[in-house]
Design a protein around this nucleic acid. Sequence first.
RNA 1: GCGAAAGUGGCGGAACUGGUAGACGCGCGAGAUUUAGGUUCUCGUGGUUUAGGCCGUGGGGGUUCGAGUCCCCCCUUUCGCACCA
Length: 938
Amino acid sequence: MSKYDFQAIEQKWQAYWAQNATFRALGPGDEGFDASRPKFFVLDMFPYPSGAGLHVGHPLGYIGTDIVARYKRMTGHNVLHPMGFDAFGLPAEQYAIETGVHPRDTTRKNIANMLRQLKAFGLSYDWDRELATIEPDYYRWTQWIFLQIWGSWYDEEQDKARPVAELEQALEAGEYLVGEDGDLVSAGSEGARTWQSLDESEKREFIDGRRLAFISGVPVNWCPGLGTVLANEEVTNDGRSERGNFPVFKRPLRQWQLRITAFAERLIRDLDDLDWPEPVKLMQRNWVGRSRGASVEFRVAGSDEAIRVFTTRPDTLFGATYMVLAPEHPLVETVTVPDQRQAVSTYQAEAGARSDVDRQADSRTKTGVFTGAFAINPTTGEEIPIWIADYVMMGYGTGAIMAVPCHDSRDFEFAKTFSLPIVPVIAPDPKWLAQQAEAIKLEEDPLECYLADPTVFPEAFCGQGTSINSANREVSLNDLSTAKAQQRIISWLEQKGLGFAQVQYKLRDWLFSRQRYWGEPFPVLHGPDGRIQPVPESELPVVLPEMEDFRPSASDDPEAEPKPSLGRAPEEWRLVEVEGQRWERELNTMPQWAGSCWYYLRFIDPHNSERFVDREKEHYWMGAGGVDLYVGGVEHAVLHLLYARFWHKLLYDLGHVSTSEPFRRLFNQGYIQAYAFQDARGVYVPASEVVEEDGSFYHNGQKLTRSYGKMGKSLKNAVAPDEMFAEYGCDTLRLYEMYMGPLETSKPWITRDIVGVSRFLQRVWRNFFDKEDGSLLVSEEAASGEIRRLLHATIKQVTHDMETLSFNTSIARLIELNNALVGLDSLPREVAEPFVLMLAPLVPHLAEELWQQLGFTESLAYAPWPDFDERYLVKEEVEIAIQIMGKMRGTVCVAPDAVEDDVREAALAEEKFRRHLDGKTIRKVIFVPGRLLNIIAN
RNA sequence: GCGAAAGUGGCGGAACUGGUAGACGCGCGAGAUUUAGGUUCUCGUGGUUUAGGCCGUGGGGGUUCGAGUCCCCCCUUUCGCACCA
């Protein structure tokens, strides 16, 4: 073979791998499985099968994981490397609606197309494990897991989820009682009722109220444009749907929710042990949003009512000069005095009508209305006014706050606007005072002025400090630091029964139902008396009914009622007869994220019809902390990764999986970006048709402006892989994508640059085969010392880079090695073989071909990864940097084991170094063996 | 506003715990092969310069024998959160 015929080679080896099932992963129970080898589970975030097809940016991460998978096979691991499709959900359904074809047909077609495109990249997936979340064999188990969640409660004492049946047993046995407020209390609690004293419906209500999947009527995100409700995570900052950018409204609706909040603490705590990018951990911590503080009760003056608030600064309690309720707070109706009723309800109506977008727009100016009622500050005994204002949210804490205007910037603004009293209870630190005084050019003593009137400065002091003005007959916080003051006030509050230390989370329960067609049906039946009953496990899956019209009931009207698509399903699906009564199926479907919460587990055992995953197989592949490497984009930092961790922990608590976390190591790949071009009207023109002339860009003679962004349809700057395959081949494309830069960063696609790696592969070929007759140039002669040293240095570096996924630098080292081989008459086998093995993960087709040409009859997929020998890394001579007074002046060559005196002598022997020392005395010499000598003189 | 990450030649990017800045590739320049273009090969390529140097990793300070790397201040870009009490 005289020419590198990539087309023929790539076809040949892809066929070979398929025929020989080269990448079939053997696990426990499979014939030929070798349990003595370590396992490696390397996973990609599986894609949505969109109709648009792939561009060169999509497979970036897949190429990365493929290289790791191939490398790990060569280092003796049993590798699990699967791929599948996340095919339920809005994108697939929206696409189906656009084309008017049933989503099952469009998604299956899209999957087939995407499979074809993926396979062309020569990725070493075990395709026998391919799965799609839309197949009944798969979503049967998604439904099964939902039933596990429904059948569980959270045991706070044991800090884990447990089956509801165990709760019922414990109640039956009297280990627990039902408290006055309907809460769960331990035996012996005062005023508690026994389980037996409850009637059937009370019992059911009690249990249903503790389930981890429950129906509740809290305000949810209603998106009429999509015809469905959405999770908090699916709503953007400006109150729109992440999918489709439709407006979203808060409305109280009865919906399914999953009690993810029960796991809040563990979802934060367990991040510590994960090998994840710090920014992702931080985003998750922020999303869960843990804050410590106190719950405090304020009595309403002249009434039996009390307002409970959460505060992170109980130490400022003496400074609470008013209270604010969220406009939606239930106590607003009871406390408002008749004179203020009109103003209050007007304000409530206004606040209710404002969308989140409006509230966002003028978040700076504070509005509110006095209710006419007063609460009593428990520390001072003073009556403080109760206001309502939309800067307090119903969704966080208790929906009410104690306002400490002197030490909270929002309360400060509000108090200034409505002339409410502002009392300092923390002495600001001198640095802050000095800064503030500087800002307003204050001449007098800043502390004195501040204490006299805290509004002299434009800002409130919100930091920690020493408490002042904080004492009553029973307790004094004065002169205490913030931490100490908090401790003291909390113990005082506890003593008085007015409050206690509390931890609050930002995380809300997960809104889990959607009114769309294209999702997993809930395996739940609703009885005529409002009872809920699960579909028995033996009857799973509940298959989506065939429907002509699967479109959602979308609307522009925010008042439109949600109408699940399944409401139009045929009666024989909707209605089920149980013991002579007609029960109706749940008509909502599960959200997109359900299927992706556990797919990694199904890959372990994709065809099991008895269990969602075989225990022994799960134990093997998920051992040592779960998936060994999980690669995907940062966009899933909160949504998918938080939901999946939640489900996994629940399955762990119930004993269904063996690790408490699903993904031990997470890696975020960057994006491939590309230049995009707009004409004078701002319309994007296809980047492929743009011509460059003297640094300007033209399309049909029109001058264009150039911008830069993520590759895709909207910017018309996508590059299709097919063109690249045709011109350069798949190995070259793979290599270029890895060579562009670090896998984790975003970087620009520049088609011109691909010739660099193409030339490299051509040159590799020419090093192996004679240009004229195509004969193999490999010889059995030993390599020279220099080539051998370079080979071993390359093995060392490339091996290291494989572990850190630094493929760009390993490729650079391989290019260097290859360049060094160019001048040789023949290629020593001792270099050729390890060189091919190192190329194998990166350019597998070419490497297989070379391996075969070297005389091997089997695939190199499981050939042992080359080792390096430290002995060969020793150079005969090393260059030592010579610095005079810390400045680089050149280098000297010495033996690698040269000591300071040798190097110094060699340096001083040369005029070019001595020159800089003329007339100076050497004061000090710094020597770093093998690297540098620095002579200090004056 | 708060938080995080990043700023290195004409371009993509190297540089492990402070120790020869710019590996490798693109582009560019010169030469060789070729009828020519392309391919291929060799050499060169941070800036400046009086050829000894001098200046260079966003800007300004600092620590150190020595700073792209550590510390402080500032600028720019990207991302995340956003009245979270």
